[in-house]
Design a protein around this nucleic acid. Structure first.
Lengths: 207, 207
DNA sequence: GAACATGTACCGACTAGTCGGTATGGCAGT
DNA sequence: ACTGCCATACCGACTAGTCGGTACATGTTC
């Protein structure tokens, strides 16, 4: 669509369907280009070209190039917060809940792999205030999962001689690194990777 | 040392000890600044200021700013290759060898945490040829570890219903993510983290 | 021992190009 | 008439890298 709407190609030839609103097109273009080339190797000009608008339009909706990046972070955090509430707050056993959370975070990560790549590669490029905010929200997520493990350890379901803090760091490290190697067209689906990562996590905690 | 030798400060006032050779000083400054601020947010001028030389000197030894980055990658690969040979090629049990490799890669990663941060954050900034070369060498390392796991699975020491490939991805993901959270002045030493990461890996493979 | 040639290790002024962002204005819709 | 949504033209700051130059060390010749 963006290619068809290339400014070089002249007039807008596609009439239906209704084009995506400019802010969403800008975010989609920014996401793809930041994931592929990096935030700083991507110019504003490239983003607006890919979105089929000009810089005036972009600066109408976004205060700065940095705001585009931050908006991607905000989106990731909204998704992860919503899904955490969904997976963790059930009445099932702690093992099932931990497993559900583990599978879900992998599936969500893989579903938004471009966002994941950008998220972990560009943290240092965020304004320090926003970086602190992002880290704090990540921390809360981390603590929710640690709480599940500690709950299981307290009840004897998980072995208690493993640092819950470190297990969470270990697991999330594995998940966040998916951006480096996972291929959507590879042999394993997101779900399969999620199930196996959950198995590995629960194996590590097995009594 | 670098501060004392600041160009703004005028003449070179430090006579002993013999100053580190310029190329090493440039690499040390580049490593610190790339880890702290990112490759592209760091200017050549900042690097040479920190190294106490000028850009002319830098370009005498390095063809480009990109060459500095590549040299950091080459250094990481040299270290990891040497240590792999050391840890993997013993006559001990496969469990002990896998454990030794696991501890070693964590300790090495933490010892060179700045290099790790740069390595995983800047891969996309390498020239495609060099990126392919780096990935190939990483792949060989990955396959060595997978081979250890498969050897253990074949001999019945490790459970065989876990994908060795995925276990390696899982473990290395956790290790490579250390740059995001590990603090040298934190509660755990590199060795302690290494031992616990090794425990988690071997737990996941336990029969 | 001095003079000279050469090579090395730098210095720092400079440049072309690119960048993010701004100011302004036209147009369509209400 | 006003407002929102853009496009266009332009600006100043900054960049990586180049280039002409200097200082010094070393080896050779006389």
């Amino acid at each position: 669509m963006a290619a068809e709407m290339s400014p070089e190609g002249g007039e807008q030839v596609v009439r239906e369907p209704e084009p995506e609103p400019v802010p969403q097109r800008l975010l989609a273009a920014a996401t793809r280009l930041f994931a592929e080339h990096g935030f700083e190797t991507t110019s504003v000009q490239q983003i607006v070209d890919a979105a089929g608008v000009t810089k005036g339009a972009m600066y109408h909706y976004f205060g700065s190039k940095d705001d585009l990046l931050y908006e991607i972070y905000a989106r990731v955090l909204r998704v992860q917060t919503a899904r955490m509430e969904q997976a963790a707050d059930s009445t099932e056993s702690v093992q099932r809940r931990l497993r559900a959370v583990a599978v879900d975070v992998v599936v969500t990560t893989v579903t938004h792999l471009e966002d994941t790549v950008i998220f972990f590669r560009s943290m240092h490029l965020l304004h320090p205030d926003k970086q602190a905010e992002v880290r704090a929200q990540r921390r809360r997520y981390h603590e929710r999962v640690r709480g599940l493990i500690e709950e299981g350890q307290a009840s004897g379901v998980f072995r208690a001689d493993r640092s819950a803090e470190l297990v969470v760091d270990f697991f999330f490290g594995a998940v966040h690194h998916l951006g480096f190697w996972y291929r959507r067209d590879g042999p394993m689906s997101a779900r399969q990777v999620g199930e196996q990562f959950a198995d590995l996590l629960l194996d590590a905690l097995r009594v």
